[in-house]
Design a binder for these strands. Structure first.
Lengths: 169, 169
DNA sequence: TTAAGTGCAAAATCTTTGCATCAGG
DNA sequence: CCTGATGCAAAGATTTTGCACTTAA
């Protein structure tokens, strides 16, 4: 299964009575140009668009990512940051999951197709149709443990690896 | 591994410089008495306590569930409802995952120990210590699909099964 | 032409925090 | 006693919504 194109998304939207707009095209473009492994919050998406000179209101951003998630063009992630993130919905075999450090919010993608198989099995048992499955592996790094996590670590402490990769708060 | 008792939790807290208080005891009691498969938001926990005549402030609730999650007494769930839920952290072999209907928020628990095994494998690869892993399977039921989901369904529509079980919004 | 989409500001939700006071170890 | 915990109210953060106007199909 290939990724959607703007044209095919437009077709999908129209068939449901929804529309493709310049704002939605710009939003999708951002996701198509996003390096693999990245995901954006509504705020981050808004800022990125602003940097590109695109003034799209935050409400429109929120409404669009919600609709695109419903259309299964985007995938909504609830990781550990307290707000939602979005990424392109890459279907099997590019489906992936996330490891998250609960101290630094550093996120690493990984692929493991057996997770999807196990999820499908559960869906069949309940007679539900699978839309997506997300395995979130909460972890803590050695460095944090050595610093006495969780009691002696301030909530904004980050390991050197997370700082190097810009995951710090 | 057995579930924590209030006494063992107190010991754990004290060893870290934290304290057991009457409020925290009441909060834990609610979770111990909660039927298997249920999980509570901060708001719901607050209401339950109020019904029992316990007036514990919402701030204290939030502070307590956060701390208990850090202590791995509670497990924080990010399902599809837009806010966090908490349940007792049952370690292996009572560890479980969730199927969620993205239309009705109906939640079903399931056990599958292979998920934990796959998660551990990923942690070892990255040299992280596993804290928890949560597989969330987003699904939609046949009834919703037959009603034309997602375009023709109002956002508060619920299938008959969800209504019968009180999962509706 | 007309129902859907947009932008703005205001509201709604959920969660955190400052501070004075209280109390567990 | 001393530091962590509580309650309250106020603030923060994120997301949704009402409404007048615009626009895609």
């Amino acid at each position: 299964m290939a990724l959607d194109t703007t044209a095919s998304i437009k077709k999908k939207l129209n068939s449901r009575g929804w529309r493709m707009t310049p704002q939605r095209e710009k939003i999708l473009e951002v996701f198509y140009n996003l390096p693999q492994g990245n995901h954006l919050s509504a705020e981050e998406l808004h800022n990125l668009l602003e940097e590109q000179g695109e003034n799209i209101s935050l409400s429109t951003i929120y409404r669009s990512v919600k609709l695109m998630t419903k259309m299964r063009v985007l995938r909504e992630l609830e990781l550990a940051e307290g707000h939602k993130h979005y990424e392109l919905n890459h279907p099997y075999p590019h489906h992936h999951h996330h490891i998250v450090c609960i101290q630094c919010n550093k996120t690493i993608e990984f692929q493991d197709d057996s997770i999807l198989k196990h999820s499908l099995k559960q869906c069949q048992k309940e007679d539900f149709q699978l839309i997506d499955c997300q395995l979130t592996v909460m972890t803590i790094c050695q460095e944090a443990l050595e610093m006495g996590w969780p009691s002696t670590l301030p909530s904004d402490w980050c390991c050197s690896r997370a700082i190097a990769e810009g995951h710090h708060k």
